[in-house]
Write a protein that binds this DNA or RNA. Structure first.
Lengths: 443, 443
DNA sequence: ACAGTTTCCCGTAAATGC
DNA sequence: TGCATTTACGGGAAACTG
């Protein structure tokens, strides 16, 4: 009987851990006020228990004692009614689904007045499901426990919470469930951290980080010779926030390009210079901006003129920019006005030597580039990304603060910038004067 | 004493009607679950009553009886505790502020099984504030009442709710507060409706509708000879939704242009044709799309070639489009590739004859047009709106379904569309072949 | 003042009800 | 089934709170 009891105690499991419904690839993070689902299954196939087992969810019950519970936030379930286990499909055993759970903070915070003060995304909680029965005069209490849970109150906390989840996951393989991991978090080897970072890219963009990309990240993240990365550095540094922004950029706008390996991405400005300098004019590569924390991508290209080599880079494109035009379309359409008023696309070969359209032609949005049939009576339009060749430092540009009310000056600037593109008839001053008046002035 | 009582009964007023905090210019609409504030003031300056008057808010109490209450939704306050009136500033009388009110639907709906079934935005509710006191042995109950309230549950209902508010406001001047107005709503004269529509534009864009704009709207809205507009038509027609979308477009992107009168806006395609035909080539005007209900604006311009006049219009710009580039910038930069591969801006004179930059130069965003100083090491970029001259109907365009994987075909199209703009060196086929390999291939 | 944290709420999308 | 209405919740910003 004691054996049976022991057996049954291990038979109750939380099958699906609570997950945020909107980010299924990022489990273990729960947002207050947002519904989640947990399914509890009784592995012992004992239909005799049908409708006898009442399961009650509890939050952070009996984890580590007062010391812990007092300096962590406490939460309740919004609708925490117990439920009774029932048969699932035939021969499937007993199961109960808590489909409308959500968390609400208990406003009874004494928050252990500091020292080892954890940030909210460093607090690890746990949801337990309790049940029990009486059999042959013996009480048998059973419980099942969720994976550790990070509770947040705003989606802005997801990146920080995810950092905790990654750190925890790597360390929980060595030591058993430790909800106080972040009170004194062990460092990770670069080997460990790089692996988990790489997985993020696999998960979001179906391609891991390659050797060179990881080397570039190592340079940014590891600064001590032992190769260990400390949680405090990883957390306080903005590096993870930067990487997370890039992951989000990939997820939203660059899944295909990343998956297919056309984005070198993690490559320093200096390395970009070195790589491109040895290549023919028009060779370019895509790299993530290191200064914009919100995720941005730029292209750099090389030009050789008169024996002099120059590597240029366009102002990085953010998520917002890529809403208006996709990166492949930008690459395809990008045009530059050079000295001598010639306008051309400076992007010809993706590093090392793939013709631009061989790499990106597949992704161009046909309907944006080919004029639509004139069904609606409207003329189709598109946007062309455009730059003016930067003035060489020898002749600095004149003050560009323009008084736009002054028509003549305005037109002059207009002419300087776009004469080739727009090809205005006649001199700007003449063409901009009012046309000869007609006899009709207003409807 | 009886007179005093009567006096006091009229002395309690709801000073600020509940307003949606985010749309202060659209009062009377409350969204469930969203906080609002109501301030109740006792006009009689009687500080003796300080802390004696307990004010209780009630929702839809004692309006029209069962018949009404039963077929309307019912709401409660989320935190409906009564409050006590206190002195405001000295000599200002008694006041109480309910600063955290919000509504929650009472799920006890029997919803009078139909006939005169009102939509939710046609239900008019009222919030009353009750108080009272005993003076010289006489009970004196006082109440103050809010303006009628439309309760919605989603911001998507705001346009419909606003239509009710407008209709109600015009009719409430003639008859007293009638919460059942929409059970049998009287029609409006065009005179009345046009006035209230015009006010919307004044409120949102600081400029009313002019005579011609109103005439165009009349055409769309009034179809019977008596000039009356019926609520059912106004409500069921999508015309108001269309106008509301335009109001929103103005509010978000066109406040300046609208205020300054550069947007003709409400002008039919046919009238546009007539107006522009008499004008010199390059004359253009701005009009709102009549087909896109979500608010969109286009420009139409005229061209005279070989004695033939043609009026063109660009595909309308939506709110989303104007996020990437403002309308003045679009007008300034718009360029069109014509036969003979010439590219130019076809927009020269705003109707009737204002030079483009005299009208819009004021609004151009200098930093988008003038190249930024190269501070960050990145090359500044901008977007140029671009169209290809539509193929004349005599020679229909070839099938534009392009196999983008085919580099040569791709380049050919590219050449057709953008050769003038991008000015590719050499033949596309040659320039797109891989460059001579170097000894360095990968970092 | 300030940073970490939560709340507020629009706008869109999905779910629900009828 | 379709439409009317509500709910859900990400995301940005404001408000809170020590």
């Amino acid at each position: 009987l004691s054996l049976l009891k022991k057996l049954l105690e291990n038979a109750l499991v939380v099958e699906k851990q609570p997950v945020m419904s909107s980010t299924p690839q990022r489990p273990l993070i729960l947002k207050t006020g947002v519904r989640f689902t947990a399914t509890v299954r009784f592995l012992a196939n004992l239909p005799e228990f049908k409708c006898l087992l009442k399961v009650k969810p509890v939050f952070d019950k009996g984890v580590g004692e007062i010391m812990i519970t007092n300096c962590l936030r406490q939460f309740d379930f919004n609708r925490d009614n117990s439920k009774v286990m029932d048969v699932d499909s035939p021969n499937e055993g007993l199961v109960v689904e808590f489909a409308h759970m959500s968390l609400k903070e208990k406003k009874a915070r004494t928050r252990g007045s500091s020292e080892s003060h954890l940030g909210v995304t460093e607090e690890l909680h746990v949801i337990k499901f309790l049940t029990g029965f009486r059999y042959a005069g013996v009480n048998c209490d059973i419980e099942a426990c969720s994976l550790p849970v990070v509770v947040i109150s705003s989606t802005a906390q997801i990146p920080a919470a995810w950092a905790s989840v990654m750190w925890y996951n790597l360390l929980s393989t060595s030591e058993p469930r430790n909800l106080l991991l972040f009170v004194d978090p062990p460092p990770l080897t670069w080997q460990q951290l790089s692996q988990v970072l790489s997985w993020q890219f696999l998960s979001v963009g179906q391609r891991e980080l390659d050797e060179n990309q990881l080397l570039m990240l190592r340079e940014k993240i590891v600064d001590n010779p032992d190769g260990l990365v400390h949680w405090s550095k990883f957390k306080n540094d903005t590096t993870w926030i930067w990487i997370d922004g890039i992951l989000d950029l990939i997820k939203r706008h660059l899944t295909d390009l990343w998956r297919d390996g056309y984005i070198m991405g993690f490559v320093s400005r200096k390395t970009t210079q070195i790589l491109l300098q040895q290549k023919p004019t028009g060779t370019f590569l895509l790299r993530f901006s290191e200064s914009i924390k919100d995720g941005a991508i730029t292209f750099s290209w090389v030009e050789h003129t008169n024996g002099e080599s120059r590597v240029h880079a366009v102002e990085p494109y953010t998520k917002k920019d890529l809403l208006a035009l996709s990166l492949p379309d930008i690459i395809y359409l990008y045009s530059m006005r050079e000295e001598g008023n010639r306008t051309r696309n400076p992007l010809c070969y993706l590093y090392p030597n793939i013709p631009r359209d061989a790499a990106f032609g597949h992704y161009y949005s046909a309907e944006k580039l080919a004029p639509k049939k004139d069904v609606t009576g409207y003329i189709d339009r598109k946007l062309v990304p455009f730059s003016v060749y930067p003035t060489p430092p020898s002749s600095p540009p004149p003050n560009m603060e323009v008084d736009w009310d002054n028509c003549a000056e305005n037109d002059q600037l207009f002419h300087d910038l776009f004469s080739d593109l727009l090809d205005l008839p006649g001199s700007p001053l003449i063409s901009m004067s009012p046309p000869p008046a007609t006899s009709h002035s207003s409807p």
